[in-house]
Amino acid sequence: MIFGIEYQTIGIIVLWTFLLGYVIVGSIDWGAGFFALYGRITGRTKDLNQLIARYLNPVWEVTNVFFVFFFVGIVGFFPETAYYYGSTLLIPASISLIILSIRGAFYAFENYGIDSKLSWTILYGLSGLFIPASLSVALVISEGNYIVEGANGHYLDWQSLILSPYAWSVVLLAIISVLYISSAFLTTYAHIANETRGYSILRRWFLMWAGPMIFTCLFVFISLREHNHEHFMNAVNNQLWLFIASFILFIFATLLYYFKKAHTIAFICVFLQFSFAWFGYGMSKMPYILYPYINVNESVVNPSMALSLTIAFILGLLLLVPSLLLLLKLFVFNKAYVKGMK
């Protein structure tokens, strides 16, 4: 315990927040890859791709670190996750890793090399959409019922995973959310950059995907009731207000984009909408990281390591937050840079 808070609480909040960070910046990144591909295929390279490259070039590497931070942190705070997720996720995680690598490497080859090849844009544009799909499998598995106990350990039950409506609804939600978040951010970005043609394309995508996104959310919710009733009831009884707040923010954001008003606030609404839903989902999941094997209260790392991790985390943040702000100030929030003048 430190400052009256249990270590497992600190650990899980830190990790969940970083995962949210990754989901948001990652979504912008993956979706941007898809839009770059879309721009090339439809001959809108000028309208879309320069805008996207201007945003992505300085930040994509930082995006990736959010993910590394998460999986190093979770093994640090809750070492048992290494055992359960490690032994069951060999194939799905390896697929994710291969797609992530293709995406990261070919993004760099395409953008920093002197050649520009359509096949490279296809590789990094499409792989971007597969990443959230494949990563969401880990979240699906965390709901339990997909792991069987064998003679020598725990294995993934492929059949029940592939036949599960819950799993597919989560995968669908992951992909649609990427297009939704990414188009929202890039619409705002294009607005600041005064790129009118890119702006109208992206805004159209956003409005197109808003409906399916919220519909899939509902579907995931309903299929969770079948799949993990305990989790579902917990969400309804204790976190319902978060989901309602999230829905209101969604309406608000969509209206703002529709009426072309206050674009920065509109994106903040999208961000908050996801954060509320994210924490609602996370809080209702507690105390299980992997139902029913890993319970945060029982599998937290030993106290001396938890203390040093917490200290390292606080010191690390003191270093990171100002640096990140500097990065944002120089590139993302710098009007001259965004408009392509620097």
């Binding site: 670190v65 190093v72 640090g76 055992y83 991790l309 390292a312 690390g316």
Partner: peptide, 30 residues
């Protein structure tokens, strides 16, 4: 997985710090 479960209790700190150093470098490199 068995090693990381066992070792995770002991080596989490430097792994964690490595990520911070990497984060720091990534930001300034950009």
């Amino acid at each position: 997985p068995t090693f990381m479960e066992m070792g995770g209790h002991v080596i989490a700190l430097p792994l964690f710090m490595e990520t911070f150093a990497f984060f720091f470098e990534a930001i300034f490199l950009s």
